[in-house]
Amino acid sequence: MPEATVPFKIFRYKQGQNAGHYDTFDVPIDEDTTVLVALQTIRRDQDSTLMLRHSCHHASCGTCAMLVNGREELPCVVNVLDLRSSPVVVEPLRNIPLVSDLVVDMTDFYARVNPADRPYVRHSEFLPWAQTPDGIDSYSRFENCIECGACVSACPISGTDPDYYGPAALAAAWRVVEEPRGRQPQQALNWVDNEKGCWRCHVAFECTEVCPSGVDPGGKIMALRGELSKQKLRGLFGFGRR
């Protein structure tokens, strides 16, 4: 049974239009309704032309990331009533090219992340202890990065400098350094050691703030800087590069 009707104010844009605008839809909501389910309800019952990306519905694929009330979120795990807002404002990610409505084009995102050459999943692992139940916040696995683009959307440098690799790509590079699994850590370090890479970050930590998976891209960028600085110091004192 619906417990409330909540207005959703949604960014709309179709290719060929001069500018975007906002449409408002009233959506019946119950205590379990997520923002994603509300958007699907609009698509089903009110406007079948509404475009949005979604796939797994449980924060595992990263497809649905968008702005909910101005903040990068995965709408599949945002409960509407928990927001306590009327209207709920929904917009596409920033700093990633817009296709239409809430849909962004991830081509450029992957073009930036791919050179890190990170493995996506662990082929096999048996942990000798239980990694529970504190949740994924309590330990760091790069696989937690679901490539949703939230960090890039929130990053002030990605918004102003198109040459910047961005937080997702740099976190991926650190993953290769921290746990190479057959990859080339020095190659990853060399790749980020420049003004488009880890030295461009202004340490705003907006990326870490919005990451829905606890990857901490800001911390990973600092780790890259630390490792490169250590190598340079070793070089100064004649120990050569690792």
Binding site: M51, L52, R53, H54, S55, C56, H57, H58, C61, T63
Partner: peptide, 11 residues
């Protein structure tokens, strides 16, 4: 009609 794998597959 939507994003790829947005029906049953992705879920």
């Amino acid at each position: 009609r939507g994003e790829v794998t947005s029906g049953t597959t992705g879920r």
